[in-house]
Amino acid sequence: MKTIQKQAQALLCNSLLASAVAVIFATSALADELNYSNKLLLTGGVSQVEGAAGGGLTPWAVIGGYGTNNEVGGSVHYTYVKTGDYKLDTYGFTIGLFDRVEFSVAEQSFDLGKLRNKVTAGLGADVFGRNQLTQTIVGLKVRVAGEAILDADTWMPQIAVGLQYKDNDETDFIKSAVIGAKSDHGTDVYVSATKLLLAQNLLLNGTLRLTKANQFGLLGFGGDKHDSYQPMLELSAAYLLRKDLAIGAEYRMKPDNLRSPANDLLFGGANVVDLKEDDAFDVFIAYAPTKNISLTAAYVNLGNIATVKAVGADYGNQEGVYLSAQIGF
């Protein structure tokens, strides 16, 4: 039953994505013809890892795309994250309505093939049964107050509230005794405040998120340590070097909900399967070679994701590269 539902969902998501891509390319061809889009460069942020407009890790209060309060804008994006032992691919689209409402859909695919091989070799049994964990994230964001870019004479930031509904496809695995997540879906709720300090070339963002998601939801929602919403703080700072070039850093708190049930069931309570979750941070550079394209490169550190030292998977601190491309209109 679940499989059929998932297939239908995937089909719907893919066809939605295909239509969005078609619309965006048609419109951006039109924009190319006019050679203009009506928001200032980089002021729409880039696509964060869950698909909302923001930094790399964190949603901002800005509305995605280059549309103004009189227009509909949008973007498509692809993001590649490669840490020492894992890989994450994200692609999706964002639609911005009248600089007020943002709708986004993102597909994430997390590759843990390396861990699977180690565990399978160590145990002599394949308890994973898959290399990829995938999830769909549907986001909604509403700007409720302020104007981040133009209100340069006040301290009032632009404020937005948002939610991200996440549906993980790997129900059997994430709820198994290996991971022990309590649910395969969850909704994050957040409020973001973004301010461009124009005279100082500095953009600041603070986001407060209520979440139960383990590793962004890739390892499900809730666990044996915690199964309730917890507030998480996310901070970004970006310094504008030129109108088409920014550097910055981000910090994102993450909950630490999981304790593998396998540790008690099989290993007498020893922390053999270590799922301790750490906070994430990155240092990025964002470049807009043209009005419609932005490219982001970052060093990212996601901390521990899953370590099984007994089978030689001493994966500890997952640091690596974050690369993202976005086409906006």
Binding site: T154, A193, L208, P231, M232, M253, E277
Partner: peptide, 23 residues
Amino acid sequence: MNINIKAATAALLATATFLMAQP
């Protein structure tokens, strides 16, 4: 990490203050 309730509360308060700050 262990969720730091104090930090989160401080953040919430800071956000609320930010929200109430008039231009």
